[in-house]
Design a binder for these strands. Structure first.
Lengths: 344, 344
DNA sequence: GTGAAAGCGCTAACAT
DNA sequence: ATGTTAGCGCTTTCAC
């Protein structure tokens, strides 16, 4: 029923070996024979049996993807990037979803090893968070993550310094001086990074750092809302708020609007991630992209390099997002006037 | 280096065949031997080589998933459901992303066949849209889709009649009589279905059908916004609007709020899909869920049944969503009063 | 430049 | 209840 190499070889009047060589193009085969075999293969729609091939070669052209949550807002984009890069190089992937369970992640690794895959990409791995290096029987692996910055082994991370600067400098260039920051929850590398680089950027620009303008959020709308309400009561109200992610930014906008103020006329808001919420809310949210697709591609390419040459040293790569200016950031005209009149 | 069955057999002092049988549990093996082998396998962390196994059995316990867009709002949820059901049955999956290109979809099928997978699930397939049955060399396949209702072959669809009734009857039970509908764009089965069942539900409830209260949207916020603006100008303004999806509902809310009216006090709004936007917007959107996860699970289970018995007849299964009541639907008190005062 | 032959690790039919 | 044997389809030495 199915076409085997044997079938092709017989019809072409050659041995299986020759047919195999002809189709691979790596060994010398007479040009004429080669063409005849190629034609035959095409006509018969020959599909090499990959199980047989990998039994022989110990390569499967399949890589495993271990992902924290395949239906989160970020992971599908990362997986998309991985897929595209793999496909261009003739690889496919098996995906295992860990539901953010460390045990599932470890089980998944086992499973994948049994399937004799060539390598593994771990997306938002909990092993990596805990700085644990998985044991993969010598198979190459790459970490891709947004929220941890361990920088151990082969990994692709976000350039948080670059992204934070894009956001904060955008506000500074618009003329803002009193800029508040609503952070993510404690204990996340991303929270620390964005806060650190917020401070750094302010200082670099020679602006004062008012600790009263730094509040903690929870990555969600609710936390952003509460933190922003608090910010609106400080004596020297900020003219702009840098939210550590888009959900916080949305909550911030609700708090501002509910207080009877306008975005961006009274207070500018900028987010981080560029999730769909940024274009659902009105006015549309200015933000910095989380370069998920790019990270996925970069990770897959890194793995492919490692696959080609196992001796390569580990690489840590940072990927940069970009600034998306929409309608929530503007010149601090009105606020400044108001502030002046209050003081006069 | 890697542990083979041979290794286990030798250490246990039995033949490969016995070891194989012991580990499978289907053939009779002396209990004591069986235990010894199982223990050995565990100790040595034996991973059967699946390439070798499938070369022999012509089964891979791998199924292919062909998906329109792996980073769309819906497909990851469907894939998640598929994954969970597969995993429970010892299957894993290869995913191919078609980027909504028919040629890519056809290529993908070829690719997958070469990988000797056991079956295929096509998510939101363009072949199915065009009522084309793929040729899979006799391998079972299942369609899962939200937007077409072809009902050909093995397929899992949405029960649009049920979902639409949930939404519209919710409004009717609240006391609304003048209910508008903003449809999806022309040419989609989902658009037609929701419109048809909207009419049906209104009629069943003995309510008048005002064609002026039916407007076409485009699945997006902008289209919903424009359609809703038009609806606000009709003489007998509706007290409730059923939007064919959540994006349209969001646009509708913006139009209502911009006109100085309140949701739900002046006009109730209900969406369809239960996307993240439903909980981003304020007030939070009442809606009907698109049962993606459930559809994925159902599709995978259907495929597994077909895998177990190829002779099974095709099945068409409809999956039901559920009503999510949030804050955009209420009793038409104020509107009714206003309407009365206008008439007096 | 090509063929013969071995063998990857496993399972299943056939013996015993 | 267990061992023997063949073979799945392919690649890759080793000959010629």
């Amino acid at each position: 029923m199915t076409i085997t190499l044997e079938e092709i070889a017989q019809r072409a009047g050659v041995s299986r070996a020759t047919a195999s060589r002809a189709l691979h193009g790596t060994y010398p085969v007479k040009a004429e024979t080669k063409q005849r075999i190629a034609k035959l293969a095409k006509e018969l729609d020959y599909q090499p049996n990959l199980a047989a091939r990998s039994l022989r070669t110990e390569r499967t052209c399949t890589i495993g993807i271990v992902v924290d949550d395949i239906s989160s807002p970020f992971s599908p984009l990362i997986v998309h990037g991985i897929h595209d890069a793999l496909r261009q190089n003739g690889y496919v992937s098996l995906i295992i979803n860990t539901e953010r369970q460390v045990e599932t992640e470890i089980d998944a690794m086992h499973d994948l090893l049994g399937r004799s895959i060539d390598g593994i990409i771990l997306v938002e791995s909990f092993l990596q968070r805990d700085r644990v290096m998985p044991d993969l029987a010598g198979k190459p692996f790459v970490f891709v993550h947004r929220l941890f910055n361990s920088g151990v082994g082969n990994c692709v991370m976000v350039d948080e310094q670059y992204g934070t600067r894009l956001a904060v400098e955008h506000l500074i260039h618009l003329g803002h001086r009193k800029i508040a920051h609503i952070t993510g929850p404690k204990g996340w590398d991303a929270t620390n990074d964005r806060l650190t680089y917020f401070r750094e950027t302010m200082t670099r620009a020679g602006l004062p750092l008012d600790e009263a303008l730094i509040r903690e959020g929870d990555w969600e709308i609710e936390g952003g809302y509460a933190a922003a309400q608090a910010l609106l009561t400080v004596p020297e109200r900020p003219t702009a708020i840098f939210a550590a992610n888009d959900s916080i930014a949305v909550g911030t906008m609700y708090a501002i609007q509910e207080a009877g103020l306008r975005v961006p006329d009274d207070i500018s808001v900028i987010g981080y991630d560029n999730l769909p919420s940024a274009t659902i809310i009105r006015p549309k949210l200015s933000t910095v992209t989380m370069p998920c697709y790019d990270m996925g591609q970069t990770g897959a390419k890194l793995l492919i390099r490692q696959l080609a040459n196992h001796a390569l040293p580990d690489e840590q790569i940072k990927v940069r997002g970009e600034l998306i200016i929409r309608d929530t950031t503007g010149i601090p005209v009105l606020s400044t006037l108001k502030a002046k009149s209050t003081h006069s």
